[in-house]
């Protein structure tokens, strides 16, 4: 009977430790662009797309290149492995996950946070209403 509890206890502890280690390894810390440039760990940087600086998609490497500005107003060149993310144009916040390497932030993923995507701030307006719908 006692051995049963010991075995069960060991198994549970093993799972908890395994889960905790996996959690820490895969939980990616938020850092500033300046810190991201210095560390060689995988991190995530929150900021906004610098619309007016150059951005383009390179089909040869399947990478999307752009500049982002973090909350401290530091500009970070980003190379995303993949095409321009959905909703990129309208996102007011973006989060890039990756690592700084070879002079640019090599992002494996860029998440976009959209401003009240499904909600209107002003409600229906008399004049613009029909116009905006004809575009749909």
């Amino acid at each position: 009977m006692k051995t049963k509890y010991i075995v069960a206890g060991v198994v549970i502890v093993a799972f908890v430790v395994f889960g905790a280690i996996s959690f820490m390894q895969n939980n990616i810390a938020y850092v500033s662009a300046k810190t991201a440039e210095k560390t060689n760990r995988t991190v995530q940087v929150k900021g906004s797309w610098v619309r007016n600086m150059q951005s383009y998609y390179d089909p040869n490497t399947n990478t999307f290149h752009f500049y982002m500005m973090d909350d401290d107003k530091t500009i970070l060149p980003v190379v995303l492995a993949g095409a321009k993310p959905n909703n990129f144009e309208i996102a007011n916040d973006i989060v890039a996950k990756g690592r700084f390497e070879d002079g640019a932030f090599q992002a494996s993923e860029v998440l976009t946070k959209c401003p009240s995507k499904y909600q209107s701030k002003t409600g229906p307006q008399a004049s613009t209403q029909s116009a905006s719908n004809s575009l749909n």
Partner: peptide, 9 residues
């Protein structure tokens, strides 16, 4: 238009 001009694919 609905999504603020974002590209849908």
């Amino acid at each position: 238009q609905y999504n603020g001009g974002a590209m849908m694919r």
